[in-house]
Amino acid sequence: MAKGSMTWKGSAVRDVENLLLLLAVVRHGSYSGAAAAQGLSHTTVSRRMASLEANSGARLLVRSDRGWEPTELGREYLAAAEDIEVAPGSLSPSATGVGGAVRGVVRVLAPEAFGGVALGEAMRRLSRTHPGVRLEMINAARRARTNLVGIDFEVVVGRPEVSRNEAFHLADYSLGMYASRSYLRSHPAMREPDDLQDHPLLYFVESMQDVPELTDPLRHVPRMNQLVGATSSMVHVELTRADAGVGLLPCYVAERGGDLVRLFPERFTFPVSYWVVSRSDLLRRPAVRAVMEAIRASVGDMEGELAG
């Protein structure tokens, strides 16, 4: 057999199973992640990947700081596995279940606030229509990544610049300035917009935030000193509730509890947007399609709330 050939030894069923297992390893970035998702042991995954590479005559996976990534030949094998996965009657244990029900694990990287509110609502819907789909979230507000390793899609803040992946607009939302009612009672009254700048700001750690849409609002409040910086927008909300200062918060999160007061919205309203980044082959996965449909439905219902 020639090195790098797309033919291999063994039974057709086991060949297909190993291809789909290769797909799981790349999506999770690790043997252990693939093993957990497929209900196998780490040793079994390692052995079957070694067998697949031996039959291919070349390396299919290489280690990187992000986990296992496919080689050039490995990408060919992944394309074949993805075609198998989306085909009717696929043998993938993570694609369909009894009666064609959609099953599988979908991994998403998303900002924390969006993940907790919009994705939470999407999964509530999905639990009724596709109970066999499970969501795993990594939460961060960050730029789009070049390589989608171990995740199926990411929700990013601001329009991404991507060349190898697909990107599409998901929703618009607003940031606003908020304070708790008790904070407003215990501090000098803010009668004019400029009065706000004499108060401490609760927001992201600027040096650790590389999304322009999230750092640009700081130009509008140059006198505000950042009393507490945190990488979590949900922490910003709780700090604001705890009277630690004035929070620059996603409006759809800040206004959910009804206990925070929005300050000078005519002056301090900052429009931002959410985008989805993925690969076309990942978006064809039945489980991913099901999650995306649920997200779109949830975002549509939240349109007025997101706009702030």
Rank of each mutant, 00 (worst) to 15 (best):
L23V: 06
I151F: 04
R128Y: 12
L52E: 09
D210V: 08
R219G: 14
D194W: 09
T231R: 14
A118Q: 08
P271I: 04
S174Q: 13
R142V: 10
A118M: 10
L214I: 03
R59N: 11
A140E: 10
E303R: 11
R66L: 12
R143P: 01
R143A: 08
R63H: 07
E85C: 03
L227D: 08
S32N: 08
F264G: 11
A110M: 14
R159D: 05
S174V: 11
E69K: 08
H236P: 01
D194E: 07
K3A: 15
A244G: 04
E69F: 04
A34H: 10
E305G: 02
G158S: 10
I295T: 03
N139W: 15
L148T: 14
R219K: 08
V16D: 06
S92W: 14
F270K: 11
N165C: 13
V16C: 13
V16L: 14
L218Q: 10
V149C: 12
S232D: 01
G115T: 07
S5G: 10
G115L: 06
S32L: 10
G158A: 13
R66M: 15
P131C: 03
L119N: 09
L60R: 11
A36M: 10
N225V: 11
A58M: 07
R267L: 06
L196D: 14
M302V: 02
T7M: 00
M123A: 05
V162Y: 00
V133F: 05
S127W: 08
R75K: 12
S5H: 02
V26S: 06
V299C: 05
L19T: 05
T7N: 03
Q209M: 12
S163T: 09
N165K: 12
V205R: 14
R256S: 15
A167F: 15
F153W: 00
L22W: 02
G89T: 01
P250G: 05
G99L: 13
H42L: 12
A244M: 14
S11E: 14
G10D: 15
